[in-house]
């Protein structure tokens, strides 16, 4: 009950703060796309082509990792046989990751690959959740929403982890040649076999694309819609329309909480499906 009230307070505050998230305050012409542009907050020297400058996205990544590290260390310190509310919550998350995601789709290798599947679930969930908090990291240090998972570079890196681990798992299980041979249907006629092999390779790369783009586009679209609702209130310059739009943005915000969870869930469960597909005998 108390938690529920707290949640409502957070939502209402978040939505009200949304009114002030716009760059330059009450500009009537707002470019939503600007919200997702990255400007270096701390400039660092370039290492060849790699620009390690600390941008908004990097700060969000740090925050995500910090939250995870603090949470993990805290929960490992206070572990008790009779769990408190915090430990129960952590155990619930763990249960979703272990039984709901890894356990439900992987028939083999849960013990080996759960650390990765669970980590990717927690990482995406935490970064999505942080994306729903207004933080003063905008261009002019105003409060704003930004999700680091709404950046294709981040999601494609995460998808690459899944991609690499999938093939590593397959190769470790069956040997390099045995794993690649598994992609060819031995029963197919000679030319078709090679064609299927090529199609399989293409589909492996499309998995990479679909994993990364799904997460990226969902988070980006969600934040863009939220930003559009917030900016429209300014565009119309009317308290009546603004209040209606704020009601709409509350609904959208709730929906975004759901999306944040579902996207983490889907990313992790698809990773589990891919890894277990590489591990299984018949392919």
């Amino acid at each position: 009950m108390k938690l529920k009230r707290l949640m409502w307070v957070v939502i209402i505050v978040g939505v009200l703060v949304g009114l002030f998230l716009l760059p330059g305050g009450a500009k009537s012409q707002v470019d939503v796309a600007k919200e997702f542009e990255l400007h270096p907050l701390i400039r660092l020297p370039k290492l060849g082509p790699i620009d390690l400058s600390v941008t908004k996205a990097v700060v969000y990544l740090w925050l995500t990792t910090a939250v995870i590290v603090v949470g993990a260390l805290a929960v490992s310190r206070i572990l008790k046989a009779k769990p408190g509310r915090f430990q129960s919550f952590m155990e619930m998350l763990y249960g979703i990751a272990h039984d709901g995601i890894a356990g439900s789709v992987m028939r083999v290798g849960v013990a080996t690959w759960f650390p990765y599947i669970g980590s990717v679930f927690v990482f995406i969930l935490v970064s999505n959740a942080i994306g729903l908090l207004p933080l003063p990291l905008g261009e002019h240090h105003q409060l704003s929403f930004y999700a680091v998972t709404g950046n294709l570079n981040v999601t494609i890196t995460l998808a690459l982890f899944t991609f690499v681990f999938t093939h590593y798992a397959g190769i470790r299980q069956k040997g390099a040649w045995g794993y690649v041979k598994g992609w060819m249907l031995p029963s197919a006629p000679p030319v078709m076999r090679e064609l299927i092999f090529v199609m399989h390779i293409v589909s492996e790369f499309f998995r990479l694309v679909s994993l990364s783009v799904r997460l990226f586009a969902n988070m980006l679209a969600g934040h863009a819609i939220l930003a559009v609702f917030f900016t429209m209130a300014l565009v119309f310059q009317s308290y009546l329309i603004a209040s209606v739009l704020q009601a709409g943005s509350v609904v959208l915000f709730l929906f975004e909480i759901f999306i944040a969870f579902i996207q983490a869930f889907i990313f992790a469960i698809l990773s589990a499906v891919y890894v277990s597909g590489a591990l299984e005998e018949e392919h």
Partner: peptide, 29 residues
């Protein structure tokens, strides 16, 4: 495309995996 962000992601996600693996999942399980 920004390689810097990719590197940061690798780094932070790596730390997250390590910490979760070593300090959270084992004891929780």
């Amino acid at each position: 495309f920004s390689p810097g962000l990719t590197v940061w992601t690798l780094l932070t996600f790596g730390i997250a995996v390590f910490v979760l693996w070593k300090y959270a999942f084992g004891p929780l399980q």
